[in-house]
Design a protein around this nucleic acid. Structure first.
Lengths: 182, 182
DNA sequence: ACGTCATTGTATCTGTTAGAAATATCTGGC
DNA sequence: GCCAGATATTTCTAACAGATACAATGACGT
């Protein structure tokens, strides 16, 4: 059991907000959870099938031929709580930027600076996105019971973006081209 | 082509430091790159075989029967530079902690605080590890040409650990049990 | 000398997953 | 009616993690 439990958690969580088609579910996961989670069609469709067989979701007729809207059942909600309570299974780290910088002597100082600058730019952009999102949702959902929890995830993004910017600045300074190092 | 390019990069990078057996390679990746990269045997052995066929590594007799030491060739070094120069392929995000916190209303305030506290504890421990590692390597390798690049990766860990601690503190305060929120 | 136990070392298998491709269907603009 | 693009489903391939099985080696106590 507990097969594909990670994807099940995201799928059931999404359906706990409101009933959706598989396609809409994938859109929602990309747009709403996109900063810290992702699922692909290849995972979502089989997972929904399994969840249907286990009675955790119910399939209804969709807005067009051959399409289905899924809604979570009572046993599905129970299953979601069970999954959320499970210990966090952390994915093995794979940071392509740090791997390249680690072999910076082989890659060359110039290219390392390029990578750092690009990472900084992306972090700045992410920071703006997080701040805009926070302002927008704070106004729209500030009173809902979900808001405090959503806010925590956004603030995680803000903290990490700022950390990345500070690290990139520090590293760019330390790796300035003016210092060919003897 | 460019099959398994991520693993190839780590493997060739490791062998660019010094020739090793597959086993030692995996140890080195775990111990040295462990904070931002990981590889498993199931990846390393087939990758070494492919690299050998392509002439990027050379197989020599190992320290015991049926064991091999691999060393990088000139074409392997060229291939490494090529791989390091390739655009970074960032892995899709999958943060089990943030996913659980996002559905915090379903999971419950109490358990969320537990998750945050655990995350904070881990970050504090990581921070100490990074700082110890920095002090140790700074003394041992401070003069080698690799050091500035290695230092950058360690300082990335320090910045992110600190950000996680600050975020967890802020979130724990915001999610105090004293505020049942009407 | 003998057993045994941890470490070193090689190899393979299974299930999960990302990502892309192939295929329909519906909607609105022209 | 026709086309473009969004919606929606399904399937395939290769990357990948993690586990397992296996064998050789060497250190240790007895």
């Amino acid at each position: 059991m507990a097969r594909s439990s990670q994807t099940q958690m995201a799928v059931l969580g999404g359906l706990s907000i409101e009933p959706m088609t598989a396609y809409a579910l994938r859109e929602a996961i990309r747009d709403v959870l996109g900063h810290f989670w992702s699922e692909s069609f290849g995972q979502i469709y089989p997972t929904l099938q399994v969840l249907e067989e286990e009675g955790h979701v119910r399939r209804r007729e969709g807005p067009r031929a051959r399409s289905s809207v899924f809604e979570i059942t009572a046993s599905g909600t129970a299953r979601l709580i069970e999954l959320l309570t499970e210990p966090i299974r952390d994915t093995p780290p794979r940071d392509g930027l740090l791997l390249r910088l680690f072999f910076g002597r082989t890659l060359g100082r110039e290219r390392c600076r390029g990578l750092l600058q690009a990472a900084r730019d992306r972090a700045v952009q992410n920071l703006h996105e997080y701040e805009a999102l926070h302002a927008q949702l704070s106004a729209a959902e500030g009173d809902t019971p979900d808001w405090p929890f959503i806010e925590v995830t956004i603030r995680a993004g803000i903290h990490h973006s700022r950390a990345t910017i500070a690290w990139a600045d520090e590293s760019l300074a330390a790796m300035s081209p003016e210092e060919p190092r003897s």
